[in-house]
Design a protein around this nucleic acid. Structure first.
Lengths: 151, 151
DNA sequence: AGCAAGTATCTCGCTGAGCGAGAGAATAAG
DNA sequence: CTTATTCTCTCGCTCAGCGAGATACTTGCT
C-alpha cells in the first residue's frame, strides 16, 4: 500500500489536532461548570465583542445551529452564571442585545490566554517563511472543508 | 497593537478550521440520522478496525469520555442502525467485542471519501518541502494542545 | 389613522443523550 | 471455594435542545 502516504498522514494529523482541541475545550468547559455549547457561545460572543458587532439571540442561535427555544435556554444558562446580560435594543424593541460581562472576558482569558500563549511560543520555533507556508496550508484546508459543507 | 500579528492570525485560522471540521461532521451526522457522538464512535471503531485492534464497550467509552451507561446507550443506537454488532469474547466472556458492519464502512467512505479526496487534492498544490513544513507545524501544535490538557 | 403581514424572542410540553448507583455475570487470587 | 476484581448492563433521573405556538414590537398598505 501507498505511494502518496504523506498527504494521508497529514489528514490524520489534522483530524488528531481537531480532536485534541475539542477535548481541551470540553474539559475546560466541564471544569467551569458549563457545557460545550456554552463555551462555543462564549467564544462567539467574545469574538463579536472584539469586532464591535452587536449579537442578538437570533444571530447567536444561527451561528450555533440552535433553534429559538434552545437559544433561549442557552442564554438563560449564561445569564444565570453571570456571563451575559440581556438588554432591549432601544432602536428596535423586538431585539435583544447580548452584552458580555466582565467575568466572561476573564473566563475567556483563562481559556485562551494559557493555550494561545503556548501556541504562539511554539510558533516561535518556525521562521517567517515557514509560518507563511503554514498559513497558506491552513487556509487551503479551511476552504476545502467549507466548500465541502455545501453539498 | 501588534508587532507579532502573524502568530495570532494563525491561531485564529486553526480555530476556524476546527470549527469548520466540527460543523462538517455534525451536518454529515444529522443527514444520516445520527448524533455527533455516534459519528465520533464510528470513526474510532473504523480506525481501530483498520489497525486490527479489538474494541470493547469499555475502551470505546473511555475514548469518548462516556460512562458505562452512556456507552451502552450509544451501542444500542449503533446496533439498532445496523452499524455495529456485539459479540461475546470467547476468551474472557465478560467482554464484548464490537464488530463494525459493512454498512458502517460504507458510511465511513461517504464521510471520509469525499472530504479526504478533496483535502489530498488541495495538498497537491504544495511541494514536498512545504508539506513537510506543514506536517512539522501541525505536529508542534498538536503537542502543545495535548500538553495543555494535563493541567 | 388603522390593520394586516412580518420579525424577534420567549413559553410550554416533550424526546432522548448521558449520568450515578448498583445489579449480574464471569474471571482471578488466596 | 470463597472473596475480590473486572466488564457490561439496567434503572431512574436530569437537563439540553426540538417543534409548535404565544407574545410583543415594527413596517407597509390602503
Amino acid at each position: 500500500m501507498s505511494e502518496a502516504e504523506e498527504p494521508m498522514r497529514l489528514v490524520h494529523l489534522l483530524r488528531g489536532l481537531t480532536v485534541e482541541l475539542d477535548l481541551f475545550g470540553a474539559e475546560f468547559a466541564a471544569r467551569h461548570g458549563l457545557h460545550p455549547t456554552d463555551l462555543r457561545a462564549l467564544i462567539h460572543l467574545l469574538d463579536a465583542a472584539r469586532a464591535g458587532e452587536v449579537v442578538t439571540p437570533g444571530r447567536l442561535g444561527e451561528a450555533l445551529r440552535l433553534n429559538s427555544a434552545g437559544t433561549t435556554g442557552l442564554l438563560d444558562r449564561l445569564e444565570r452564571l453571570g456571563l451575559v446580560r440581556r438588554e432591549r435594543d432601544p432602536q428596535d424593541r423586538r431585539k435583544v442585545r447580548l452584552v458580555v460581562e466582565e467575568r466572561a472576558i476573564e473566563l475567556g482569558q483563562g481559556f485562551f490566554g494559557g493555550l494561545i500563549g503556548d501556541l504562539v511560543a511554539a510558533m516561535g520555533r518556525f521562521d517567517p517563511a515557514e509560518l507563511a507556508t503554514a498559513r497558506r496550508f491552513l487556509l487551503a484546508m479551511t476552504e476545502v472543508v467549507a466548500a465541502a459543507r455545501e453539498a
